[in-house]
Design a protein around this nucleic acid. Structure first.
Lengths: 156, 156
DNA sequence: TATAAAATCACCCTAAAGTATGAGCGTTAA
DNA sequence: TTAACGCTCATACTTTAGGGTGATTTTATA
């Protein structure tokens, strides 16, 4: 507790001690020079030098350092997996909900048969849907359709 | 030239002027208090206060600011839409140069026939290549191959 | 130089994909 | 209510893709 206090107010304590010491020196000087009765100027000059030094020492000791905050840019690669469907493009092409659904499953690499099973409809239905999708996207193959749909932001 | 000199040594000049003023004040005080013959302590105290202040002022004015540089990391999101091929994955799967080439054209939606024309080889060759690609990627269809290759960063 | 891997091509066959046409049914908007 | 549209399904046919096997040539590497 006491040690903590000492550590915390070290500067103040040193300053106080120094001041006390100086006052003692002053008193001594006073006696010395008054007795000698010579030159108040020397006394004053000494005082000036000592207290100027003290002031400088104090300022240096107590002045809080100016913090210079520097922002360092750190490059962070963020996996930008945010897909936003281009609804305008979707409407422009006139793709129906079901057709888009089929297109998405196509993009995942499912066969027409697998898509049919997934959507609980017949293979022929999927063929019809995929045919319409190709027509609307103006392509001939599913790989083309998937590629174009990705570029048009219809699927992720 | 003169103005420049004044500007450059402004602090020193101010200090000199201040010192001169203080000496003048001292002289005046000397006269004042000597005449009054009272308390050298007040005189000394005033001197102490004045010169301590002067010291502090000097230190603050002339000392180069103690800068404490703090580095703060600032995260910058870099949008990386540039494709970097995962060569480790490529080597792991053992895909040959030609096979990767075929895979890329597949991803663009080309038919085997078109790929054959593009690469100046026969349709049968492309079939062989694509077959090996499917085998190495452990898939059955080209759409699957394209999907998987994109996820594995083998193609953009 | 011997050898392995890559690249090329062919033939055959099956599976899947794509095209064309027609039709039934439910919803919705003019 | 009728016309349009979306979703469903079917049949028939063509094209493309995929699987299997085998062979030759080129290229890289030990």
């Amino acid at each position: 507790m006491t040690l903590n206090f000492l550590a915390k107010h070290r500067s103040v304590i040193i300053y106080g001690a120094s001041l006390a010491a100086l006052l003692f020196v002053m008193k001594w000087l006073e006696w010395r020079f008054i007795i000698a009765d010579n030159s108040l100027e020397i006394y004053a000059g000494a005082l000036a030098v000592v207290f100027t030094s003290l002031g400088i020492w104090l300022a240096v000791k107590l002045m809080k350092p100016k913090t210079n905050t520097v922002f360092v840019e750190k490059e962070v690669i963020i996996k930008t997996n945010d897909f936003i469907l281009d609804e305008q493009e979707l409407n422009r092409l006139g793709l129906s909900k079901r057709e888009l659904e089929v297109l998405q499953l196509m993009a995942e690499g499912l066969s027409n048969h697998q898509i049919a099973e997934r959507l609980f409809v017949s293979l022929n239905t999927i063929k019809t849907h995929s045919g319409k999708v190709f027509e609307k996207l103006a392509v001939q193959r599913r790989t083309q359709a998937v590629d174009k749909a990705k570029k048009l932001r219809l699927i992720p």
